[in-house]
Nucleic acid binder design. Structure first.
Lengths: 160, 160
DNA sequence: TTATAACCAAGCAGTTAAGTAGGAAATAGC
DNA sequence: GCTATTTCCTACTTAACTGCTTGGTTATAA
């Protein structure tokens, strides 16, 4: 799993789109202005997002972008995977040509963890983020008071 | 939160160390050999890990590395944060000099998500990973038999 | 004394990030 | 049809980062 600033830009832009996308399409120029991301870079990101049907572009004057599906059906993992291409790393080249079991075991453990992270991000939707964030919106200060059971991973973590 | 291949290397190395660190220290040369990571790169990673007291080095012949604490007390977030320095990104420069509330709101949402990911990774310890992974060790194949409905842990290979 | 292995620092090739530049194609309003 | 708008597309650029190499220095067990 790659989680870089590129993915952050994409999530930020999608959040912006979801927030103000109620009536009519949102132009990239607006997002660029609001979020401080260069227009051309946004275009590149949205080319990726469009390729995965996460957004839908409307050309011409009055055009812009819509969400490709409802915010309830777009997960953070969807967004990040669209722009940060998943690099299928080592895991012994996909085959089991490890010299001994140790290397392969370690890679398996990492693979499991990687899937865990992926599933976790896949369980968070744009709608959830917005709904949850809206509750603490007053004051524009992010106070991280964390007793939030709603977004925590499903109970696969501690047992198998 | 940054989650790059650098962090993956660090987690892999720490897993290796935890796995074979029962009796005596483990040399970086062994980890390098087993995991296929260059020795010098390991040295750089372990310099970071040592700085955060996640490992303890013993010089001289017969030397090597121990875990800095028990595997139960080392989380994945600890490891990743040690090598992938947390970049405290935008959030409007830490202050609330947003032009309007929108930008700030989006940043807050990202901040929340970022904390969520961090807490998630912080809730997984090396010991948990190993204990859980050991159960499905037979065959050296990571079988993702999670019953995740919407998520596709396998479909990212064909997403290209 | 010597071999071992952690420590340290400078630098390098390749990749990626993020942005720039300059368009082409679609479309609403005139 | 013309024009402005806005998506869409391609190529290039600068800076940063990754992963690795080289060449050391210390500490220490034998």
């Amino acid at each position: 799993m790659r989680l870089s600033t590129k993915g952050r830009y994409a999530v930020t832009a999608m959040l912006d789109l979801a927030l103000q996308g109620g009536e009519g399409p949102v132009t990239l120029a607006e997002i660029s202005e609001t979020q401080g991301i260069s227009l051309s870079y946004l275009e590149q990101l949205f080319a990726c997002l469009r390729g995965k049907n996460l957004v839908r572009g409307v050309r011409g004057p009055g055009g812009g972008y819509y969400l490709g599906r409802t915010a309830e059906n777009i997960s953070i993992a969807d967004i990040i995977c669209a722009v940060d291409e998943w690099v299928e790393f080592t895991r012994c080249g996909g085959k089991k040509d490890c010299k001994d079991g140790k290397r392969c075991l370690t890679h398996n453990l990492w693979d499991d963890l990687s899937n865990e992270i992926f599933n976790f991000l896949g369980s968070i939707t744009l709608a959830q983020l917005i709904e949850r964030g809206g509750l603490k919106e007053e004051g524009c200060i992010s106070e991280q008071d964390h007793d939030t059971p709603t977004l925590m991973p499903t109970s696969r973590t501690e047992a198998a």
